[in-house]
Amino acid sequence: MLDILLVTGSYVLVILIGSICSQSGFIASETKNVVSKMLFYITLPATVIYSFVGFEFDATLLIASAIGLASTLLGFFGTVLYTMKKSPEKRAFHTLLGYGYNVGCFALPFVSAQFGPAGVVAACMFDLGNCIMVSGGGYALTRAFILKKRTEGVLLSILRTLLKSPALDCYVVLILLSLAGLSVPASIGVLLEPLMHANSFLAMFMIGLAMEWKIDKGRLKEVLQCLCWRVFVAVVFCAIVYVFIPMAESVKVVTIVCMLAPIMSVGLVYVMWIDGDTKMAGFAISLSVAVSLVLMTTATMLLS
């Protein structure tokens, strides 16, 4: 348990450092744009590839992938429905942050410390379903249907956006290789390990740079509404998994922990790309980290 608290505490520390650097003017808040590109195009794809080192495909774990996809789809389309009366800008905030789980940067180290390599494999399989929406699917749908920013047909616009997501592209290629019985060599993992470790730092640091300590009541209401929806969806799916889904107990616990993870850090990147309210997004992600720390730790203590 001490290992879990230390890992999660280190994330909070990096967020605080980033926030202090931004608020004090030591580092310009605009630096988050540079950090976001490094995260999205370099460290996140490297983390995805690293997670497949020695990976052996297990068809039974596809249940975890299906749960990851189902929960993100419900989370996304639920936000589409409950925000119908809001402005496109506010709707985009919810449809970019109201679904999906920060597995690679947050849940994976948490699971690794508590459940070891077997838990990491289960978390990666959950992330296979999660990443379809997180690594570009939700952004593509938001851009096409909520903001109506498309220059060609809807399907072509969505496909073009998805293909521009390096992390999702890596997942697709690696899954195909796994189905063919191939895995990423250990030597590649050694080369990518520094980038993998840098991913969590950059993600949390970027959140700190974008974080706003003061937030008005209107924006706080939007943030709380977004977080309450996320927690509701997560709790419903956790209950379904725990009671009804036929999975090994260890995989079941890891799946539940992953569904209690915070808002994906790449959500802040998407908000930047649509010129949205990054201060509010940074605050929402930071608050979700605090909520998830409590929920993930509690679930691990009760179910392990």
Rank of each mutant, 00 (worst) to 15 (best):
L73M: 06
T151C: 12
K149W: 10
I285W: 05
M204P: 00
G104M: 02
P246G: 09
A299M: 05
K164P: 09
V14C: 03
N199E: 02
S187H: 01
V12G: 09
A167W: 00
S157G: 01
A248T: 15
I256G: 03
N199F: 00
F283H: 14
S65V: 06
A107G: 09
W229L: 02
L268Q: 03
I188A: 05
G104V: 02
G181P: 04
M204D: 00
A284E: 09
V236R: 04
A66V: 04
L168S: 13
V190I: 06
G116C: 13
N102D: 12
T31D: 01
E222A: 12
A261K: 02
Y50H: 13
Y101G: 04
V236M: 10
W273F: 12
I240T: 10
I4W: 06
F110N: 07
N33V: 15
M133P: 11
E212A: 04
I67M: 01
W229K: 02
V251L: 09
V253F: 09
A248L: 14
P262K: 01
G116Q: 13
A248P: 12
M38I: 10
L44F: 09
V294Q: 02
M264L: 11
V257T: 01
V12A: 07
T278C: 12
S22Q: 13
T95P: 12
S178V: 08
L5N: 15
K164V: 05
V291L: 11
V14W: 00
T83S: 13
V190H: 11
L227E: 00
V80D: 11
I207H: 01
G137Y: 04
A239H: 11
L155H: 00
T47C: 14
L73C: 07
I17L: 04
T83H: 08
F76G: 10
V111Q: 13
M133C: 14
G189L: 00
Y101H: 14
M125S: 15
I285Y: 06
Y242Q: 12
L159N: 10
A107F: 13
L44V: 11
S157L: 03
I146H: 07
V121C: 08
N130Q: 14
Y171H: 12
V120R: 10
A284M: 08
W229G: 01
M247R: 08
R160G: 13
T300R: 06
M84Y: 11
V154A: 04
A281T: 06
L191D: 11
A239T: 14
K32I: 07
L182I: 09
W273Q: 14
G68W: 05
A180H: 08
R160E: 09
V80A: 14
M296G: 00
M84V: 13
I245C: 05
V7C: 11
F110C: 11
T83E: 07
V231Y: 02
G9H: 02
L162T: 05
A239I: 11
G116R: 12
A92M: 12
P246M: 05
A66H: 00
P185M: 02
N33I: 12
W229F: 03
P88I: 04
L108F: 11
Y242N: 09
L108T: 07
S10I: 03
F57I: 03
V35M: 04
P166A: 10
G267R: 03
A140G: 03
V243K: 07
A239Y: 10
A203D: 00
N130S: 14
R230Q: 00
K85L: 08
A284S: 15
L159F: 11
I63A: 08
F26I: 10
P45A: 12
Y41I: 01
